[in-house]
Amino acid sequence: MKRLDQLSLRQLRALQTVAQTGNISVAAEQLGLTGPAVHSQLKTLEEIIGSPLIVRQGRARNSVTPQGEVLLEAYDELRAALERAITNINALNHGHSGSVVLGVVSTGKYFAPRIVALCQREFPGIEISLSIANRRDTVASLKRGALDLCIMGRPPRDPLTHEIALGEHPHIVIAAADHPLARVPHVPREALLSERWVMREEGSGTRILAARFLDEIGLGHTAPTLEMDSNETIKQAVLSGLGLAMISAHTVAEELASGRLVALKVEGSPIYRQWYLLSGQDRPLSPAAEKVRDWIVGHTGDYFPKLDI
Rank of each mutant, 00 (worst) to 15 (best):
A257I: 11
Q236V: 13
I234M: 11
I247M: 03
W275H: 13
A253V: 11
L261M: 10
A249V: 08
L264K: 00
S258I: 09
T251M: 03
E232V: 09
W275Y: 15
Q274M: 12
G243F: 02
K265A: 08
W275M: 11
R273E: 15
Q236M: 14
Q274C: 10
E232S: 11
L261H: 05
K265S: 06
A237R: 02
V238N: 02
A249I: 07
E254L: 07
S258E: 10
H250E: 10
Q274L: 13
G259K: 05
K235S: 11
Y276P: 09
Q236E: 15
L256R: 03
L242R: 09
G241L: 07
L244Y: 04
L239E: 07
I271T: 15
R273Q: 15
E255Q: 09
K235P: 12
I247A: 03
K265Y: 05
G241V: 07
W275C: 10
V238K: 01
M246L: 12
A257K: 15
K265H: 09
I247H: 03
A257S: 13
A253F: 08
E254K: 14
Y276D: 11
Y276E: 09
V238D: 07
G243C: 04
E255W: 04
R273W: 12
V238C: 09
Q274R: 14
L239T: 05
S269I: 04
V262T: 08
A249N: 07
I234A: 01
S269P: 04
A253L: 10
K235L: 12
L264T: 00
Q236G: 14
E267R: 11
I271Y: 13
L261Q: 02
G268M: 11
A263K: 00
A245L: 05
L261S: 02
S248N: 12
I271C: 14
G243R: 01
V238T: 03
R260A: 13
S248C: 10
H250D: 08
L239W: 03
L256A: 07
R260P: 07
V266A: 00
A263D: 01
Q236W: 14
K265L: 01
G268V: 12
V266G: 00
R273Y: 13
Q274E: 13
R260F: 07
L256T: 06
W275R: 08
I247V: 12
T251D: 09
V252L: 05
L264N: 00
L264W: 00
G259Q: 10
I247W: 00
G241T: 03
A253M: 11
A249K: 01
V262W: 01
K235Y: 08
I271Q: 15
P270A: 09
A249Q: 03
T233W: 06
L256E: 02
A257N: 10
Q236S: 12
H250Q: 04
E267G: 12
L264F: 02
I271L: 15
R260I: 06
G259D: 06
E255N: 08
L242G: 04
R260K: 14
A237N: 01
L244K: 04
T233L: 06
L244S: 05
K235H: 11
I247E: 03
G241S: 06
A263S: 09
W275K: 08
